[in-house]
Design a protein around this nucleic acid. Sequence first.
DNA 1: GTCTCCGTAATGCTGCCGCAACCTTAGCGG
DNA 2: CCGCTAAGGTTGCGGCAGCATTACGGAGAC
Lengths: 223, 223
Amino acid sequence: MRLLLVEDERELADALSAALSKHGIVTDHTIHLADAFELTRQNSYDAILLDRRLPDGEGLTFIPLLRRAGADTPIIVLTARNEPLERVEGLDVGADDYLGKPFLVEELMARLRAVLRRPPSLTELQITVGRMLIDPLHLSVTVGSIPFDLPRRELLVLVALAKRKDKTVLRTTLEAAVYNYEEEIQSNALDAHISRLRKRLLDAGAGVAIHNIRGVGYLLKEE
Amino acid sequence: MRLLLVEDERELADALSAALSKHGIVTDHTIHLADAFELTRQNSYDAILLDRRLPDGEGLTFIPLLRRAGADTPIIVLTARNEPLERVEGLDVGADDYLGKPFLVEELMARLRAVLRRPPSLTELQITVGRMLIDPLHLSVTVGSIPFDLPRRELLVLVALAKRKDKTVLRTTLEAAVYNYEEEIQSNALDAHISRLRKRLLDAGAGVAIHNIRGVGYLLKEE
DNA sequence: GTCTCCGTAATGCTGCCGCAACCTTAGCGG
DNA sequence: CCGCTAAGGTTGCGGCAGCATTACGGAGAC
């Protein structure tokens, strides 16, 4: 196993490298972001450990750079900047985990193992259908780069359909996506949402259509 | 997006459910581990939020149970037991993340998104015959990557045949696949469906043919 | 208060599907 | 090779299940 460690505190870096090597992990170490990017191009790492405050900038900027280059290498951010909102920031630019300093090497190892258990591939963060752009994780929708707000239930229907665009989505699947097991439905509430959603999509010129497959379910398609 | 929340503090659970629902997340809630396991068998969750101290035992014991049952649903442990070594324990039995109480909902959301970016490698069961791609679970069919929707009964016939492609399917088997025990048939309705299905397959250029085995049943083959 | 969301129910419509009548084909005996 | 029989194939038709739409009222947010 081979890691890239991007960290400017020499002492910590050395100690960490030594500790990891006892677990059979080979570590490449660099201080600068620029070097880090170069190293990822030349080598293939199983994971990357990333500090935030670095001599040549904010470590987090490295993540979108790497992702855009097509790399899905797991990234764990290691930093003293450990406020909850800072953690949110780090995770939302694409980090897989976020660990505040100081930490136990044992915890880092455990988080590494957890991250490496997951398959390497990344889901599409955005789905495009017609003139719509859908982010299923943030549940945001834009039509032609204009934000497109819709009621919660309609939004859930749309996202569920978009995740399987051009494929049928069973009626039961849609119901499961929109209601929990306590919320009983005794009417055609789902149909009503579909109807209202259709109208909104039409008005917004979203360039998509929701088709019904009688007795089976629905299907989202470009027009 | 649908979550299972296993948590015994009613107040926290309600507050969390409400907060998550504002983020468009549908939550099923239970207090007991036994119920939790049952719910995972009946529903398909995008992720599970798990407390440790529960009335019927240590929450962590749920994880190996679930994993052994073949589910790779992401699990985030939410607990007041937040010592580093307790975190290691949680992660190493198979949790994907570990968040100490109290926490910001925003952080939970960010960690959820991080975990969901790496989708469980679901072995999507698909059957290919001729130019057709058939997904028997979602009941969806495509011909040359173009969605091919057909009436429910014909769809059921096709899927039943595809599941045993190149092998004969008994007439009675087909009837069982298409009709439930309440729906009696007193005519050649099945033959009619086969006929209409054949026409549609031909028109769509599906590259398959339904053969009849006289007195026995039918058989789906590539042309 | 005002506004939006959402479940309910009434209404109208669409097209699936069971039926049955009729046609085609396979299998077999002479 | 012919013709009979039974199984399978095709097609039009009518009934009705399932879907679409919309108005209404309650509930909750601000």
